[in-house]
Design a protein around this nucleic acid. Structure first.
Lengths: 372, 372
DNA sequence: TACATATGCTAAAACGATTAAGTAAGATAA
DNA sequence: TTATCTTACTTAATCGTTTTAGCATATGTA
């Protein structure tokens, strides 16, 4: 359009004037309509416009006639409010800040997608960011997001972030923890029932006839992992298998080589079944087993955590613990919006979602294999 | 802290007064330091503070003595600027809106992560959203993001969005297309060299001795897919294999069953090698081949698109076309920031990134298999 | 002595929206 | 007739920052 116009008109212009014309176009670039523009175009005060467009016409006894005119003008002049100004004035930004550990991690990208959709349903937008499980990043991102004027936060807290989270609570920032929580803090959260998750998996393995069940976990103080470990331990103990409890912790700085080492150990012992406590550990484990030419389930039974395409591609698809991602994400958003606006979308103060065990052929009845 | 304090003092208070006290605490909640606070604490004007903290002291001939005092006070009172106010004043939000088709798709979540990081490096934040390849969603999201006051947009355009994109350009919205583009529009973009990508793959297959190479694509008018098809076709023609050109298009509404059908056809014909034009098609293809008990590469050679964990888990890891995701994401951000602020971070006006072919054992020399 | 120049700062408007408080004009009541 | 109440608006302050224009005071020059 612009170019067409320029071509048509420039016929009549000297070179000098063309640049004037250009300048004029640039200057004339339709600035976004503000409340003032609407006001002066209707010959009324800016306040009136604001009142009408915020649905407070009744309260301020603005005439129906005027309300109509204002709305018509707003539509015609394509007015939409400047969120930055609204935000400064002390209003809300309709923005939720989300900190996950890594948005490119399939678990968190799936959860983020659902957070996005739910937030949109409730008329919020989402600022995502990734902490890389790093405390400094987490603290920086919290500051950045608050500084951006987000109305509330959904945070996957990393190791060591307890105090930062406590500060947020003390400052009355609307906050919901996701995926993990700090049981000693009075904070809202939306998590898997991690204890039940490994309990379910361990019970299943025991029911299938396995006794020497080993866990692969990683080094952390985070509550969600400790719960997973506890679920395994307690179930083993209940079954009188306390002597077989075997927990292997991997340092995340070099997961592949540490996994190799751990698996090497396990095969020197009498481990019959492996339970991996995270998705990343599961996938690494599967890769390493393949490297070592060990077959699931012939050489070892295997239970993974969270779905992965990789699980279903094996000759024996992998039994895994499935999280109700939709529910966890939905309720996190519901809760934070409740905190922000006093609404009551959330089913509960705190969400501890039930896991599901998707049973596939990586965990067959043990006697089928050994006694036939 | 708050609770401790409350307990101590409440001893002396009636119930009524406790709520007063609570109210008082809430009111007293340390408000964030503003420029005004600094100014009055130093007995100078707010302008001076702003000038000093923006490094314009020289320009405004502020004394060195004063500069020191201001900086010391700012540090001591833990001042940091209110970004919302800065944005209002400067008309910028330091926000980039990003529309991908689905943030939970591994390709886009990986690219989003890099967009996030690069944007942060340039002092921007990112609003992500997902269009689900849907035109209405795309148009709605563009509006929503502009309403949020984003300074610029990075968009993965969906089928049929040409006109919406053209409008954005006409409105001078800083915009960079990602992953796909419209060659007839004068718009910035950051994409893979799609033609070269399939050219590379097809060439490789031909070099390995395959002649009957079939492509699996999907129904779309989008340029990036047409380029991929063209790269294949032209390479086949150059090699004198025009008669073997075989392009199969799948409707995305039901990919798995359509894939089964297509593969069934291919096995009835004389296809020796399959080239899948997207990651999703590749993974679906691999699943279906497994279902059909067909082995890669014994029964058929296979080239995939974009990396996937699945590719490397097969007995013969899959040869695939690798995109320089980092570069594509980086340059998209660079470009849009350049458009917004007149900087010049981007290497070029338009980025057409070189693909890389990661050669693995799914595409062995043909004669090795057939003539030994 | 008078004028110009340098120095070191301040005043005030602006960005766009919201809202408590106020006002003017007409209607109603005493 | 005067006081009171409605109605339908407006005024002006405010959020926190930036920036242009200006104002004293001090110093230098002729």
């Amino acid at each position: 359009m612009k170019v067409l116009l320029l071509n048509r008109i420039s016929i009549y212009l000297t070179l000098n004037r063309i640049s004037d014309f250009y300048h004029h176009i640039t200057m004339a670039k339709e600035k976004r309509t503000s409340i003032k523009d609407l006001a002066s175009s209707l010959g009324v005060s800016p306040a009136l416009i604001s009142i009408v467009l915020n649905g407070k016409a009744k309260q301020y006894r603005i005439s129906d006639e005027m309300v109509k005119r204002v709305k018509a003008a707003a539509k015609e002049m394509n007015y939409y409010p400047n969120v930055v100004a609204q935000n400064l004035r002390g209003g809300k930004s309709q923005l939720i800040g989300v900190i996950v550990t890594d948005i490119s991690n399939p678990f968190y990208s799936t959860i983020s997608r659902r957070i996005e959709d739910r937030a949109n349903e409730l008329n919020y937008n989402v600022l995502f960011s990734s902490s890389d499980e790093n405390l400094e990043n987490t603290e920086r991102l919290i500051k950045v997001l608050l500084n951006k004027g987000v109305d509330g936060l959904i945070v996957v807290p990393c190791d060591g972030s307890r105090n930062s989270i406590a500060e947020l609570i003390a400052d009355d920032v609307p906050l919901v923890l996701l995926d993990r929580n700090f049981p000693d803090l009075d904070v809202k959260y939306s998590c898997l029932d991690n204890f039940k998750a490994t309990r379910l998996a361990t019970r299943h393995l025991i029911d299938q006839g396995y006794e020497n069940i080993s866990v692969i976990s990683y080094e952390t103080q985070m509550n969600h992992i400790m719960e997973r470990v506890a679920g395994y331990e307690e179930t083993m103990r209940e079954a009188g298998l306390e002597k077989s409890i075997n927990i292997n912790r991997i340092n995340l700085s070099n997961p592949r080589s540490e996994m190799r080492e751990v698996l090497g150990h396990l095969f020197q012992g009498n481990t019959e079944a492996i339970l991996c406590l995270t998705n990343m550990l599961s996938i690494n484990g599967i890769y390493c087993l393949k490297e070592m030419n060990k077959k699931i389930p012939d050489d070892i039974a295997f239970v993974g955590f969270n779905r992965s395409d990789v699980f279903n591609l094996l000759d024996s698809p992998v039994t895994y613990i499935k999280q109700p991602i939709e529910k966890i994400a939905n309720e996190a958003v519901n809760r934070v919006v409740d905190l922000i606006s006093g609404s009551s979308y959330a089913a509960d103060d705190v969400i501890i979602a039930d896991p599901e065990l998707v049973i596939q052929s990586s965990t067959p009845k043990k006697n089928v294999l050994t006694h036939t």
